[in-house]
C-alpha cells in the first residue's frame, strides 16, 4: 500500500532522513522504533505530507504522493500529547474532519456517537477536553482520527504521556481497533515493549536510516548489530574472541549458534539467554536481586566480565551472595564484528 523510497530530509547539514526505504502492506502495522533524534517522527511527517522531501518519494497504491497535499491524503495522525482543539468540546473535536467532507449534521452526529462508543467514551460528547484525564484525551484523539475513516493511521508516541495502567489498556484497544478495521498503520515509539506489542513488523531507525526491519520475534532474537541490541536493552557489550566453534568471553568459553569467522568480536547476551543450570559452565555469585512482581532479575558476577542478568520466577530466586551455576543458550549469545572505536 504505502511505499517510502530513498527518502531524504535535510535540516541544513544534518540529515534527519538519510535514504529511508519502507513498504507497508495492506492491513499491516509497522512500528517505527528508535531513540529520539533518529528521524522517526520526521518519517511520519513525510508520509503525512507535513514535511517536504529533499529526495526520494512516497507512494500510495503505486501513485506518487508528491503532488497530493497533506489535507488531501486521507491519512490519520495521532499526535504526542493529543493536540486536541481546546476551543471545541469532545464531539466538536471528533466531528472536525467530518465537517471538511459533509454538511449533513445528522450523519456527522451519528458517526461521532459511533466512534466515541468504539473508544469507550459514549456520552462524553459535550464534555470540555480540558476536563478529561490524559487517557480520555488520548481516546478522543483516537476517535477524532478514526471518525473520517482514513486510509492509513499513524501514531506519534501516542502513549508517551500516560501512566503504566493507561498505556496497557490503550495499547490493547489500539491493537484491537486496528485489527478489526484491517487498517494499515505506522506506529512511532521509542519503547520496544510498546512496539513489539502493537506491530506486525518493527522498523528500527538510527540516525535517519532504517537499520533493521522484521517481525518482532525475529528482531528480538537477532538484532542486526550491537547498537540495536543495546538499544533493545540487552546486556553489556563485551570484547570476545571466536576460536573454532567456541567464543572466548570474559565469562568463559561459550557455545554460540550465531556463526562468525575466527577473530575478535563484540558479544552480547540476550536477557532471556542466561539461566540457572546446575551443570552449566559458568560459576557465578549473585550480587543483587531485583523483584519486579512476576519475576526476579538477578545480577550475577563471574570471571572478569560485567554482571550477567538472569531472569527467574520468584519461586526459584536465589538470595544475594549465593553461588550458582549458569548456562547460556547458544542462540542467545550474539556476536558482531568488532566495532572500531
Amino acid at each position: 500500500m504505502l511505499q517510502v523510497e530513498r527518502a531524504v530530509v535535510r535540516y541544513g547539514e544534518h540529515r534527519a532522513l538519510d535514504g529511508v526505504d519502507l513498504a507497508l502492506e495492506a492491513g499491516e502495522t509497522i512500528a517505527v522504533l528508535g531513540p529520539s533524534g533518529s528521524g522517526k517522527t520526521t518519517l511520519l511527517r513525510v508520509v503525512a505530507g507535513l514535511q517536504q522531501l529533499d529526495a526520494g518519494r512516497v507512494c500510495w497504491a503505486g501513485g506518487d504522493l508528491a503532488r497530493v497535499a497533506a489535507h488531501e491524503r486521507h491519512f490519520g495522525l495521532m499526535f504526542q500529547e493529543y493536540a486536541l482543539f481546546p476551543h471545541r468540546d469532545v464531539a466538536g473535536n471528533v466531528e472536525f474532519g467530518l465537517r471538511m467532507t459533509t454538511s449533513d449534521r445528522a450523519a456527522r452526529a451519528r458517526r461521532v456517537d459511533e466512534v466515541l462508543d468504539l473508544v469507550g467514551l459514549g456520552g462524553f460528547q459535550s464534555r470540555r477536553v480540558a476536563s478529561l484525564s490524559g487517557g480520555e484525551q488520548q481516546r478522543v484523539a483516537l476517535a477524532r482520527a478514526l471518525a473520517v475513516s482514513p486510509r492509513l493511521l499513524m501514531f506519534d508516541e501516542p502513549l508517551g504521556a500516560l501512566d503504566r495502567v493507561w498505556r496497557q489498556r490503550l495499547l490493547t484497544e489500539i491493537r484491537s481497533i486496528l485489527d478489526r478495521a484491517a487498517l494499515p498503520a505506522l506506529y512511532v515509539t521509542h519503547d520496544h515493549d510498546e512496539a513489539f506489542a502493537v506491530a506486525n513488523r518493527v522498523a528500527i531507525m538510527r540516525a535517519g536510516r532504517v537499520v533493521q526491519l522484521g517481525e518482532p520475534a525475529n528482531v528480538w532474537r537477532a538484532p542486526v548489530d550491537a547498537w540495536t541490541a543495546t538499544f533493545l536493552g540487552f546486556g553489556p557489550v563485551v570484547a570476545a574472541e571466536v576460536r573454532d566453534e567456541i567464543v572466548d568471553t570474559p565469562w568463559g568459553a561459550l557455545q554460540s549458534s550465531n556463526r562468525l569467522g575466527p577473530g575478535p568480536v563484540d558479544a552480547i547476551i540476550r536477557p532471556d539467554g542466561a539461566r540457572i543450570d546446575h551443570s552449566g559452565p559458568i560459576e557465578a555469585t549473585i550480587v543483587r536481586t531485583t523483584f519486579t512482581g512476576t519475576r526476579v532479575e538477578l545480577a550475577a558476577v563471574s570471571g572478569t566480565g560485567p554482571a550477567l542478568t538472569v531472569v527467574v520466577v520468584p519461586r526459584d530466586a536465589p538470595a544475594t551472595g549465593d553461588r550458582v551455576r549458569l548456562s547460556i543458550d547458544p542462540d542467545a549469545l550474539l556476536v558482531y564484528p568488532r566495532q572500531a572505536d
Binding site: L77, F85, M100, A145
Partner: peptide
C-alpha cells in the same frame, strides 16, 4: 503548531486551518 497539523491531517486546507484553528483561538 500541532493543532494546525492535526487540522490538516483531518482534511482542512491551509485557509480552512486558519479559519478553524488560528482564528477562533
Amino acid at each position: 503548531p500541532r493543532l494546525r497539523d492535526a487540522a490538516t491531517m483531518l482534511g482542512a486546507s491551509p485557509a480552512r486551518v486558519w479559519r478553524e484553528v488560528d482564528l477562533p483561538i
